[in-house]
Amino acid sequence: MSRLGPEDESGKRWLRRDLLAVRSRLTAGDVQETGAALAARALELPELAHARTVAAYVSVGSEPGTRALLDALHARGVHVLLPALLADNDLDWGAYDGPDSLVGVRHGGRMTLLEPAGDRLGPEAVLAADAVLLPGLAVDARGLRLGRGGGSYDRVLARLERAAADPALVVLLYDSEVVGRVPEEPHDRPVHAAVTPSAVHRFR
């Protein structure tokens, strides 16, 4: 993969801006409704039906809602891992044991994130996951994901690759966020599938 040139870098910033602008117009009702549809669609995935451990995340703001999905997985007896942001933007992990196991944590000037309140299991805990649910802003026809630019999940994906771990990689998005192409960088790794409220998209 080629490195981003100035035009590609600008394109990535503009694409993020446009996608976030669309999300900002969603109401709390929109997010809740699409979150329920997203959970129903995701729970049909064979990769989740047979998973014993799933690394996921708690959606915030106008992100596609994950709370219904987390609760459904937990009710199935799945060991759900949730991230805790570290100072260097890497991710530690802790277990999800229901809504009461979350605590709000504010990181600097960023929004408050809901993180697991229990013991930290270490960044390597993700290596035990059978499936990893990833946040994103878009995915393209090649399975390349556009994130927010913080790099946390790039580190997670690199850690999985170094360890030769091969969980199912699934990004959760709105329907309009499956696009023709996103700018790419050398460290980008494609996901296996994208789940939106109305469809499952699979990539080679």
Results as ranks from 00 to 15, higher is better:
88 D>V: 12
127 L>I: 00
102 L>C: 05
196 T>F: 03
181 R>M: 08
178 V>P: 06
36 A>Q: 15
52 R>D: 06
111 M>A: 14
180 G>V: 11
14 W>L: 15
170 V>D: 02
28 A>T: 09
1 M>W: 12
39 A>R: 05
181 R>Q: 15
11 G>T: 06
10 S>Q: 15
112 T>Y: 12
156 V>A: 05
142 R>Q: 11
98 G>D: 00
112 T>H: 10
84 A>E: 14
84 A>S: 15
157 L>Q: 07
76 R>D: 00
28 A>K: 10
111 M>T: 13
33 E>V: 10
182 V>E: 05
153 Y>P: 02
83 P>Q: 04
140 D>H: 11
57 Y>E: 04
34 T>V: 12
9 E>V: 14
107 H>F: 11
193 A>G: 06
183 P>Q: 05
161 E>S: 04
121 L>K: 00
97 D>F: 09
17 R>M: 11
92 D>W: 01
177 E>R: 02
194 A>L: 03
154 D>N: 09
38 L>V: 11
115 E>K: 05
171 V>T: 11
75 A>Y: 10
71 D>T: 06
140 D>P: 06
107 H>Q: 12
34 T>F: 10
171 V>P: 03
96 Y>S: 01
89 N>D: 11
17 R>F: 12
26 L>K: 06
84 A>D: 10
13 R>P: 05
129 A>P: 01
130 D>F: 10
79 H>P: 07
73 L>I: 13
99 P>W: 04
58 V>H: 03
150 G>R: 00
201 H>Q: 14
168 A>D: 01
102 L>P: 02
95 A>L: 14
50 H>I: 10
172 L>E: 08
60 V>F: 13
128 A>Y: 00
84 A>Y: 12
140 D>E: 09
105 V>T: 11
148 R>N: 09
183 P>I: 08
104 G>F: 09
197 P>G: 01
6 P>G: 06
151 G>P: 04
62 S>P: 15
199 A>D: 06
11 G>M: 10
117 A>T: 10
32 Q>L: 13
13 R>W: 13
151 G>T: 05
25 R>M: 12
113 L>P: 08
159 R>Y: 07
173 L>K: 04
185 E>K: 10
150 G>T: 04
15 L>Q: 07
191 V>F: 01
145 R>H: 03
170 V>L: 06
117 A>L: 06
64 P>M: 06
170 V>H: 03
57 Y>M: 00
166 D>L: 13
127 L>W: 00
137 L>D: 02
54 V>Q: 00
124 E>V: 12
34 T>P: 08
148 R>Q: 15
174 Y>P: 03
116 P>S: 08
